[in-house]
Design a protein around this nucleic acid. Sequence first.
DNA 1: CGTGTAAGGAATTCTGACACG
DNA 2: CGTGTAAGGAATTCTGACACG
Lengths: 78, 78
Amino acid sequence: MSIKVIRIGAVCELTGLTERQIRYYEEKQLIFPDRTRGGARTFSFEDVDILKEIHTKIQDGFHTFELRKTFSRQPMRS
Amino acid sequence: MSIKVIRIGAVCELTGLTERQIRYYEEKQLIFPDRTRGGARTFSFEDVDILKEIHTKIQDGFHTFELRKTFSRQPMRS
DNA sequence: CGTGTAAGGAATTCTGACACG
DNA sequence: CGTGTAAGGAATTCTGACACG
């Protein structure tokens, strides 16, 4: 499911991550949520799975810039 | 997908229905969303499909109490 | 670097009610 | 009956910043 309709609160419950962690991973270009017109992030179930993988990798010692190559199969800037 | 994580705003976009219609169908026991701790309704993709069907039936002239038998395969009160 | 937190604001959703018919 | 709307409140999410290290 790649339809982005899940708000960050639900993503926290599904992943066990905090809002802070999720926003940080987005800031580091590892995850690419959509936005509601009001500016709220919306994620897909696919994003939820990716977030879990990202966190696992981080815990394994990887850094965000190293994971960018792995997870950035999404929107490219430029 | 029966995981209930979609907020009513997104459901409106996915179904084309208004919040009022969705809440009314819930009031009439045709749909059974979960709730966040704060009280906000959460729906599943399955619920989204059911809502579309409900609305089609309503437009076909059916009444909510008639549809209850069709869609109430969910929680029963008492 | 990755994450926690307090701060203030804006968007989202909620309920109960009045309305039409 | 099914749906629209204005009303006021509560919960949710947002950003930028300071903190630790």
